[in-house]
Design a protein around this nucleic acid. Sequence first.
DNA 1: CGATGTTTCGTAAACGTTTGCGCTGCCCAC
DNA 2: GTGGGCAGCGCAAACGTTTACGAAACATCG
Lengths: 326, 326
Amino acid sequence: MVTIRDVARYAGVSPATVSRVVNGLTGYSTSTQLRVEEAVLALNYEPDSLARGLKTKQSAVIGVLAPLVSDALASEIMSGVESAARSRGYSVMLGRTGLGSEHAAGYLRTLRTYRAAGVILISAAITADMRRALGSAIPLVSVAIRDGLRFPSLAIDDERAAYDGTRYLIGLGHRHIGLLAGDPQSVLVNTVRERGYLRAMAEAGLPAVLEQGNSLYDSAPPALGRLLRRDPLLTAVFALSDEMAAAVVNDLQRLGRRVPEDVSVLGFDNTRTARHVHPALSTIAQPLEKMGELAVERLLAGTDLRPRILPHRLVERGSTTQVPPG
Amino acid sequence: MVTIRDVARYAGVSPATVSRVVNGLTGYSTSTQLRVEEAVLALNYEPDSLARGLKTKQSAVIGVLAPLVSDALASEIMSGVESAARSRGYSVMLGRTGLGSEHAAGYLRTLRTYRAAGVILISAAITADMRRALGSAIPLVSVAIRDGLRFPSLAIDDERAAYDGTRYLIGLGHRHIGLLAGDPQSVLVNTVRERGYLRAMAEAGLPAVLEQGNSLYDSAPPALGRLLRRDPLLTAVFALSDEMAAAVVNDLQRLGRRVPEDVSVLGFDNTRTARHVHPALSTIAQPLEKMGELAVERLLAGTDLRPRILPHRLVERGSTTQVPPG
DNA sequence: CGATGTTTCGTAAACGTTTGCGCTGCCCAC
DNA sequence: GTGGGCAGCGCAAACGTTTACGAAACATCG
């Protein structure tokens, strides 16, 4: 392990000077800069991140916390985070908070012991526990959820997005539109999406039919069954995650209903899975990668605590169509 | 920020003693242990990871490097890594190496500056560059790929798995079986899977038909087209990733062929996406989560450099069936 | 030419831990 | 009663950086 002292010796200067040129500070002549740079190259020196962090009370790591690490939504956001972080010289530490955020506080604590530069919280509400664990030193930005006031957030306008999705279905002529919601206690975003749906239905004078899932694949079929029982005339279902939507189109086909001829299904998020289904899902797109990138940008900028609303967009694929005649 | 000194003062002992009880060493009486533990609780003390790592020349981070972070295969392995790591008190640092491993060496270098306890490399071949960047201090285990000799690896028997998959298709009566391979240069695992396919076909006296994709969704349709052109009588296609297999069933349906009635398709990996398609994919399952867990286990055990072969398993779902009569 | 400023650089003290070493008591055996 | 052994603990030095401070060298200007 080659240290700054070795470099200093090699270049015939003091460690302090090496530190200065390595960090691009001022206070050295061009000639010594050259000598130091040459020494760094020759010895293949790389500053020890731990020592540096200890001294500066700040390390170049960004924590990313998601309910599930193998979740498509979180994955794509993390992908954006990773690339933005790396291009700025930061590393990312990964943590799974669990569906109920059970492990979030613990992770925040360890991130603090690493003196992380910031943490990005995906799809999770911020509890008092978490605030305590975080302390005041580490900035946090919350993504894909609008938790309001204390922390900057980065999300689409979920109410409006759900409203727009529902309007779209209504515009297609549908009158019996069921909503497959996510679990409201774990992902608070779902309740505001529900509101958007309810508003659109109310405005159109249509009856709302709503069942809860938990955003995951397996929760959809039973919820779909309940939906169908409550309104057998359903011609459209709006699922609040692509994964549930995928399950819905598969289960519908299993039940002998054609998608989209008999019933249209609209997804949410536009994750990779939206294209894996056949017919491919029409869905409300969130700019997931971009959200990840912006999250690290905001984290490092530090300023501007206001929630930032990103544009959503309806992408039309094969799973939706005009209401069947009759 | 409360330090070990604060705790020591509070408990009326020296920092050294606090360190000893915090780390569970010996050399203190029960009564002082109690006092220290009380102080730790009272002050909510948590040792600084950076200082600790600096002193011990080892930090509790495990690096995980994957070609793509939003890839389903890598995601599920990472999920296993994360849970095993956390339960042992380790944190995981995430890195994207890129399809051609462009960024791998860079990441290894920064992991070294963090004095990571180890790194887990997913689906990537180990280059000389990477070996140099890694140095000798950090253990590495390679997952989902068998790179051979220098580093311990954790994978299924890919040749045998592909062989078994092909045999399964043959056993179903198929004679015209196309293989959709991954990109051999990026994921060397594909060439050994190809061998398994070729062996099974040769043994059965059947002609091999083989096209290259790159493991991702979009590469499949064109490759499928080429496959169909080369053998219009194809009744089965074996895709070397679930994502390609998903694309194949969708594209087949677009072309008016029914799956599995007209043509069977068999996937590989058994990722989440296998269930997202309709009909759900029959596929060769790798124990992905388990592989992630075992990887950290081996990393920390440190011993036993021999490659470890995990069992694969064929899971039959709706996308495969007997060859159509005629 | 002296005074004053400005570069350029080195010294040394920190950052928060861990750990080798040694000191103090105490117990016990002779 | 002396000595050896051992448990319990503190001192202080390290780990590899960064950075305040000051010293030297040099330029500038009256």
